[in-house]
Design a protein around this nucleic acid. Structure first.
Lengths: 133, 133
DNA sequence: ATGAATGCAAAAACTTTGCATGACG
DNA sequence: CGTCATGCAAAGTTTTTGCATTCAT
């Protein structure tokens, strides 16, 4: 289970790391802030410090287990890097985060970078939307 | 000059506001952090507090004079809202910020929001690139 | 056993706010 | 003149770091 995932990326198997991975895997909302994860740990009676949560999430990010997003609003949001690439839509009314995939946009981005003499390494696309009532 | 711009958006004409507007207009780099603006003020022998810089930039944003970006890395970057809409490319080697316009991407974004039953209100697209050497 | 990981508290980085003083219209 | 804006310092947020202790292998 989680132990293998951690070993695979060269991280020692420790209780905080296993627990945080479990929380991310079982979360109702795939997009959690460090604070969210911390609260979930408290909830689960696990005594892990907030500093450790940040450290572990950062390690997970470096290891490619997790993706960090900087949506508007100051704080980072983390998401398990499972599955294929996608971008996000944030509903400004409800705060809901919707994932979407679009190959045309991906292609266009590469094209644009090329046109300017660059290689596209990464990108960040967030649509801020309102539900049409 | 600047006085008119300020009056037009309903802001009292004060020295800090005029100075900050001038700095944004004459900046070598169109994308400045609050700290950058603050340093430019010091440079110009103008005694304006950092808190005022933040307050004024926020007011400018509300007034539509300025656009605030949250690129990766924690701090906000401000840009004069002159001209038409564009997105950004950040060179990961040099830190350069390149502006670009692409109508196809804009259209696709609207389409995607619609497909999910939303209205697109705003968006944030940043391409992280490396120059092909 | 030994080096890495953790918890705590302190610090850092960025931004906002309270309040007395000063400036705009 | 009344009100709004400013400066300063203090507080707020989010994230990082130092260090002694604990844990994994």
């Amino acid at each position: 289970m989680e132990n293998q995932e951690l070993r695979k990326v060269g991280l020692k198997v420790t209780l905080p790391r296993v627990k945080i991975l479990q929380i991310l895997e079982n979360a109702a909302d795939r997009h959690m802030s460090a604070e969210d994860v911390y609260k979930a740990l408290i909830e689960a009676e696990e005594d892990v410090g907030l500093a450790t949560v940040y450290r572990v999430l950062t390690q997970f990010e470096s290891a490619g287990l997790v993706i960090r997003h900087n949506f508007d609003g100051g704080h980072s949001v983390f998401e398990l890097a499972s599955g294929e690439h996608h971008d996000h839509m944030v509903c400004m009314d409800t705060g809901d985060i919707i994932e979407f995939r679009n190959q045309d946009i991906e292609r266009l981005q590469h094209m644009i970078a090329e046109e300017h003499g660059y290689d596209l390494v990464d990108h960040n696309l967030v649509l801020y939307v309102k539900s049409k009532r």
